[in-house]
């Protein structure tokens, strides 16, 4: 069984600085999305439960740095990587990422379960998995809290706001994993050292013949929110009640 995990290269969100309300991304180290790491961990667990048969393959698309960034996933247990390198791509929008990832998945050939995080760590738009499913003409299940396989059937728990539903579907399938459903393993020192030696298939964007038909989203502004809260101290519960009354939230 081949388990494909799509992961996105993003800036380390903890290290983004805000200057004059604008995010400064220069020198911010690149990493892989946090929820993507949940997806990788889920992939590793699916394989373990399937008697450790099959391979876990990471796919990603990004600028040249992705060749290094993907080592983090290889260290965490993925067997190999297939990445699309687009030198111009620093900020790929969802529709284009989906096309590149789908191309990488086709290159792998057999993909039985294709895992995504429910959303990327930076943009959290949550579209790419669904878009890839459409391109590959596969069924999809989002917000998955659990994935089990028996033979060629996957049994997936989808967690909605107020319900959980269990669905079954024949492989192959695209599954988007819920954030925080597992604790991604910390790679050991020797796994980190071995990551660079694992197989990496690198696809140059120019070698792909598909159309990406340009951007579909324009960003008008992207600024840190201004906070203009009153910060009025309230010293007693009585005073707080008076405030709630004055603002019309409570009546005596």
């Amino acid at each position: 069984m081949n388990i494909v995990v799509a992961m996105k290269q993003i800036p380390d969100l903890q290290q983004i600085r805000i200057r004059n309300r604008c995010p400064v991304l220069d020198d911010v180290p690149l990493t892989l999305g946090k929820i993507d790491k949940n997806a990788l961990e889920a992939g590793l667990k699916i394989r373990e439960n399937a008697g450790n048969k099959g391979r876990v393959i990471v796919v990603s698309a990004g600028n040249r740095d992705i060749e290094e960034t993907v080592k983090e996933a290889l260290a965490a247990g993925a067997d190999e990587a297939c990445i699309v390198v687009d030198e111009a791509a620093s900020d790929l929008e969802s529709s284009i990422s989906a096309i590149l990832l789908a191309a990488a998945i086709k290159r792998i050939g057999v993909a039985d379960i294709i895992l995504f995080g429910e959303g990327s760590g930076d943009n959290y738009s949550g579209q790419v998995g669904a878009r890839v499913a459409e391109i590959l003409d596969l069924p999809q299940v989002g917000y998955a809290g659990n994935v089990e396989t028996t033979g060629r059937t996957a049994r997936i728990t989808r967690v909605l706001e107020d319900r959980e539903e269990i669905v079954e579907v024949e492989l192959p399938v695209v599954v988007c994993i819920l954030a925080d459903i597992n604790e991604p393993r910390i790679p050991s020192v020797s796994q980190i050292l071995k990551a660079g030696k694992k197989h990496k298939e690198i696809i140059e964007i120019d070698d792909l013949t598909m159309e990406t038909s340009g951007r579909r989203i324009e960003t008008i502004s992207n600024l840190a929110p201004e906070t203009a809260r009153k910060r009025e101290p309230v010293n007693t519960c009585g005073a707080l009640c008076a405030v709630l009354e004055k603002e019309g939230f409570w009546a005596r």
């Binding site: 929008e93 969802s94 529709s95 989906a98 959290y124 738009s125 949550g126 579209q127 790419v128 998995g129 669904a130 878009r131 499913a133 459409e134 391109i135 999809q140 989002g142 917000y143 967690v159 909605l160 706001e161 988007c176 038909s213 951007r215 579909r216 989203i217």
Partner: peptide, 23 residues
């Protein structure tokens, strides 16, 4: 932009060759 809606958004956008914004 509930979970059903967001899951649907990406799939439909791809079918329609549309750009999509969620949340």
């Amino acid at each position: 932009a509930n979970r059903r809606g967001k899951e649907l958004a990406g799939r439909l956008a791809q079918m329609l060759d549309a750009g999509c914004l969620s949340d």
